[in-house]
Design a protein around this nucleic acid. Structure first.
Length: 502
RNA sequence: GGUCGGGUGGCCGAGCGGUUAGGCAGAGGUCUGCAAAACCUUGUACGGCGGUUCGAAUCCGCUCCCGACCUCCA
């Protein structure tokens, strides 16, 4: 079962059969956020993608150490005209706060949002500032191995030497070494670098810089990229199984990470590199500067010119799962609406499924076979580079069968008991454990005994009496008023049911 | 400009050599006091031009358009 999984490996550009270094165990590192502002919706998609991947690997029975970092130092604010400045540090000065206050504030916000999207927490969530020593050690190793050089208290990675020694620079991002080396960018500290493509691994802090640590080279701070190399090495070993992140991190972040790891230990950091793809808004990349952006909060409340209404976190999660993690996903109001309805249909189907029972007295071979094929196909799809959209299609194929039974169009007795059981187990497992979706509606006709349930029973009972007396005005007023309160009542031949739409 | 990745029906979005993807929306019908839901039936498709092939949305070439990365970004 475990040896069926295929993963698209960015470094080879191919789908490969996944083989962990240690059988049954996986070390997975995913680049986390830089906590200098509120979480961006695009971040959420990446982390939801990897959450789904993590969940599926767990489901397959692997023991996984999932490490996702918090970058709270080192990430430079790019600007060719002025000196480089650390993102956190800059924000701290603007808001007159301690850098750690900034990091703390946005880390909390990030965690909350991850929770809202129902993502599982990583096994370890290391912070860059908590691993300055490890980073200094790594810089030392890189310098000792001849891949780093110091200039005026800053240390740079020698890309030219690295390219000469190893044929790996540029491999991950699909870049030609000549192009990388022929860069003529006019960057900060250019005069200190031996070559434009070299990058800083330790940066001397100017006097106004708020974040600073002592090191053998200067009082300064580590370069961006370095924290991931150092922390992945510390918690997962020099070479581990999977390294993931957003597609826009391929270059330069991941490319430089690979270089640093080679520079420090002469070995590749990860066997499989996985990259998510961008979330677009109305066909274009989200961008604050031209207003083409939506925050997660706006998405939930609907308070945005791009949206006609708000969408629940699970509808959004479902929307994300409906596309493959390696494809760009275009967020539009229409697409969200479609996803919301689709999600509801799936959950309704699941509820209907739970109501079905059978002794299989009229077992229909074709029907049972169709279901079994869908279940097998579903897992094959998940094994095929985590193809969630196809797996979802399998689920919907079965929803059609389920609903036909729920509507008495198909006799439940056509199902064999073991097939029904398998279907229930599959739905339960895939929807909740693997896809990480959850039911956002409460209520129903068989609720636990809380106040709302009692009240609803009373109200529906009164409404039922009105209906029996053909007092349609009263019956409809009750239904309409409840609807305004967010409680939806549905009548069926077996009585009325209710759901709360949160 | 360089490097990648795309262009699929009204909208999302799979597929990537021969089989209905799926969801939403549309049309007709069943059920229902009405509504909602559900079910059944159903139309519209692979940017353009060539080529390879018995057969191409899927492979090749050209072309047009779009996006991402190259600079902080998930």
């Amino acid at each position: 079962m475990q040896d069926q999984l295929k993963i698209f490996n960015t470094i080879t550009g191919k789908k490969e059969l996944f083989k962990p270094i240690n059988e049954g165990r996986i070390g997975m590192y995913v680049c986390g956020p830089t906590v200098y502002s509120d979480v961006h919706l695009g971040n959420c998609r990446t982390f939801v993608s990897f959450d789904f991947i993590y969940r599926y690997l767990l489901h397959k029975g692997y023991k996984i150490r999932y490490v996702r970092n918090i970058t709270d130092v080192g990430h430079l604010e790019g600007d060719s005209d002025t000196d480089a400045e650390d993102k956190i540090s800059k924000k701290a000065r603007l808001e007159q706060l301690e850098p750690m206050e900034i990091a703390q504030k946005y880390t909390i916000g990030f965690h909350k949002m991850m929770d809202v999207f129902n993502t599982l927490p990583p096994s370890i969530e290391p912070r860059a500032t908590g691993h300055i020593l490890e980073q200094i050690e790594m810089v030392k190793d890189i310098v000792d191995n001849g891949y780093g050089y110091e200039v005026n208290g800053s240390v740079y990675f020698d890309t030219v030497k690295f390219v000469k020694d190893k044929q790996v620079y540029g491999q991950l991002s699909g870049r030609k070494v000549e192009d990388l080396l022929s860069e003529t960018r006019d960057l900060k500290k250019q005069d200190e670098k031996r070559h434009p493509s070299d990058f800083a691994i330790w940066i001397k802090a100017d006097p106004s810089h708020l974040m600073r640590w002592n090191s053998p080279w200067s009082v300064g701070f580590p370069g961006w990229h370095l924290e991931c190399s150092a922390m992945s090495t510390k918690y997962l070993g020099k070479t581990f199984d999977i390294h993931g992140g957003g597609g826009d991190l391929k270059f330069p972040h991941h490319e430089n990470e690979v270089a640093q790891n080679y520079g420090a230990c002469n070995c590749a950091p990860a066997n499989y590199w996985m990259h998510g793809n961008m979330l677009l808004l109305n066909g274009k990349k989200m961008s604050k500067s031209d207003g083409n952006t939506v925050t997660p909060e706006q998405l939930f409340t609907g308070d945005s010119p791009h949206l006609t209404k708000g969408y629940s976190p699970m509808a959004v999660r479902f929307f994300m799962l409906q596309s493959h993690y390696r494809s760009t996903l275009d967020l539009t109001d229409d697409a969200l609406k479609a996803a919301e309805k689709g999600f509801r249909r799936l959950m309704e189907g699941y509820k209907n499924l739970l109501e079905i029972s059978t002794s299989g007295s009229k077992a229909d071979a074709a029907l049972n076979e169709k279901i079994e094929k869908n279940i097998t196909g579903l897992y094959e799809n998940l094994d095929d580079d985590f193809n969630s959209p196809r797996a979802l299609a399998n689920l919907f194929e079965m929803v059609t069968v389920i609903n036909a039974i729920a509507n008495d169009r198909t006799d439940a007795e056509n199902l064999r008991p073991e097939v029904l059981e398998k279907m229930k187990e599959t739905f339960e497992t895939v929807i909740f454990e693997v896809f990480g979706l959850k039911d956002e509606t409460a209520g129903g006709d068989s609720q636990s005994d809380d106040l709302a349930t009692g009240l609803m029973e009373l109200i529906l009972d009164l409404r039922q009496r009105a209906r029996e007396e053909k007092n349609w005005g009263m019956a409809d007023t009750i239904r309409d008023t409840l609807k305004e309160l967010g409680v939806e009542v549905k009548d069926s031949k077996d009585g009325s049911t209710w759901t709360v739409n949160t």
